[in-house]
């Protein structure tokens, strides 16, 4: 083995670090430039990209590091979204959520909403993960899809919170010292969470949990042979993954001031998978690159044709066939 080969990982990391920095600054620049140009709509697009990227960072923990192809992550996105929507709607109306055995009211404080959204999504991921991880491969995909659809139809048939029509929250929840209705300030919250989630994901990837997760992706029996229970590792990652996606769901509800069963649909699960695959599966900033491209295509191609997803599909096909590292693979090398 040559000295160059030994040094290669460090060189790739440095290249990937440059791409990651460029993506972070690029996403930050969009709303700043948009405000300077008097185009606040672009701030909303950038915020949407940041929130979807956050959901993608969550999915990437399970899919990218653990090799768990979850087709039901919309369930966690929606659980977080509905937790935020239900709390906020009760907080605004003053009606308690439950009155027995003790009275629990709603809230419009993000600092109270986020932990509930994260806990709800994590609990959902724990239950779904514990059952789904009994299977592997295509069966895992199918069972997560089935759970996602169960959550979707549950919300469709729950009239108390809008059923099929969804639940409007009218105004965004509050955050101390921030005007959340100001697009740029709300973007700052979403962007801050995205950066924090990326840091957390980076720390997890380098931790023993992350190493065991990558080992489990390669071969579960081999991991068991060194004394680590693969299912515990995968379930832990799945729960963390669901919790991050749930947090993104709560922010998405605040962005739109509306939550509906569409957030739990299989199409949403598919979109999350698509943006992670486009950006680069298992790459730290893959979901960021994927979400930025996804939103850009949706806006730019959506203005040209109602069938813009045809072009997205073609692009996904090209990535899967010819550029399996996605955008990050193309920009920073396949093995980064």
């Amino acid at each position: 083995m040559t000295a160059a080969a030994v040094q290669a990982p460090a060189r790739r990391w440095s290249r990937e670090a440059r791409v990651n920095t460029a993506l972070s600054l690029g996403l930050l620049a969009v709303p700043l430039l948009a405000m300077a140009a008097g185009e606040p709509f672009w701030v909303t697009l950038a915020t949407r990209a940041a929130i979807l990227a956050l959901a993608g960072v969550g999915l990437n923990l399970a899919l990218g590091y653990g090799g768990l192809v979850s087709f039901g992550h919309a369930a966690f996105f929606g659980l977080g979204g509905y937790a935020a929507g239900v709390l906020a709607s009760h907080g605004m109306s003053g009606r308690p959520i439950v009155t027995w055995p003790l009275e629990i009211g709603g809230t419009t404080q993000m600092l109270a909403i986020w932990p509930v959204a994260v806990a709800a999504a994590a609990l959902g991921a724990l239950v779904i993960g514990a059952l789904s991880l009994r299977t592997t491969g295509v069966f895992f995909i199918m069972i997560t899809l089935a759970f996602g659809q169960m959550a979707f139809y549950f919300m469709v048939s729950w009239p108390a919170y809008g059923g099929e029509d969804g639940l409007p929250t009218y105004v965004r929840s509050r955050f101390p010292g921030v005007n959340t209705m100001a697009p740029l300030q709300f973007f700052a919250i979403a962007y801050g969470w995205l950066m924090l989630a990326l840091w957390l994901s980076w720390r997890i990837a380098g931790s023993r949990l992350g190493l065991a997760l990558q080992a489990a992706r390669q071969n579960r029996q081999r991991l068991a042979a060194v004394g680590i229970r693969p299912k515990s590792v995968l379930l832990g990652a799945f729960v963390l993954s669901g919790a991050l996606t749930g947090l993104a769901g709560a922010l998405y509800t605040d962005l739109n001031r509306f939550v509906s069963p569409a957030m739990l649909s299989w199409q949403t699960s598919g979109e999350l998978l698509v943006l992670v695959i486009l950006g680069g599966v298992g790459r730290l900033f893959g979901p960021v690159a994927g979400a930025m491209l996804f939103i850009a295509l949706e806006h730019l191609l959506g203005g040209i044709s109602d069938y813009w997803q045809f072009f997205l599909g073609a692009m996904l096909l090209m990535v899967v066939l010819f550029a399996r590292g996605g955008i990050m693979g193309a920009l920073a090398g396949r093995d980064g």
Partner: peptide
Amino acid sequence: FAPLTVRENLIA
């Protein structure tokens, strides 16, 4: 564990 480095294989 092929995707991990030598040190990561040992630490894991």
